[in-house]
Design a protein around this nucleic acid. Structure first.
Lengths: 121, 121
DNA sequence: ATTATTGTGTTAGGCGCTTAATACAGTGAT
DNA sequence: ATCACTGTATTAAGCGCCTAACACAATAAT
């Protein structure tokens, strides 16, 4: 998978979010084995400790399970993954709406702006 | 104005964003004087130094100007404010779209989800 | 003239994040 | 049995953010 790390936020949180999105969107299928900590860290260009921290958080959210010496696998619970995907998407939608309102846009304008952005690109 | 500070991101960036939104949305009108650094810091519950840093960044963006000992005022350039508002709103829309796509939603689903969230509340 | 308020600068200290460099125990494959 | 790989833990160092506690020059108000 592809990684994108910025300097304006804690790296481990960005890793966590991108891992969540990857699992939720099926980049790693239910039951599939994840690459190891060192491999993922190398991909993302971060320290293994930092990736480890993100993975531990991801596990706390129930999206992956760990077999001590046999690596991590995405949970088999497809329903849990679907629920997480819905929850994440909804949260992003709410965040966008809140941002638009903070700028003084009403809901129609927020929807219209999104439509315009979709049209363009 | 109201402030909302979380612990998972640099405070001065959150202050900057909320100040930007306040000016862009007209909470502080063009030409209007802003509260002082200490006053704003007290409102937001942060250290004056941190608020100072955010205000300096805000000034770098051209939204406010400083008269050394007479406080800060919002720029008179209503066009610049309107442009900033548009740019910020568009950026949030693009961010939402990117997040939705990362979760595997297509553009129609992203728009529909936003509509649904608007419906609810 | 004095006083209060303005933006600004400085120093110190604490805390969390990140990296680097190891180390260890358990497991699967050879 | 040996070896490579797994997740996990530890220690040290560096850096940025944030707070605290000041200080100073310039201006407006009294």
């Amino acid at each position: 998978m592809e990684w994108s790390i910025r300097a304006d936020r804690p790296v481990y949180l960005q890793l966590l979010e991108q891992l969540e999105a990857a699992v939720a969107s099926g980049v790693y299928a239910p039951g599939e084995r994840l690459p190891g900590v060192r491999e993922l860290a190398a991909q993302a260009g971060v320290n293994p400790n930092t990736m480890q921290r993100a993975l531990a958080e991801l596990e706390a959210r129930g999206l992956v399970r760990t077999q001590r010496t046999a690596g991590r696998t995405v949970t088999d619970d497809a329903q849990a993954i679907a629920a997480a995907r819905r929850a994440l998407a909804e949260r992003h939608a709410r965040d966008y709406l809140a941002s638009a309102r903070a700028l003084g846009l009403d809901d129609n304008e927020a929807a219209a702006l999104l439509a315009a952005v979709i049209q363009e690109g």
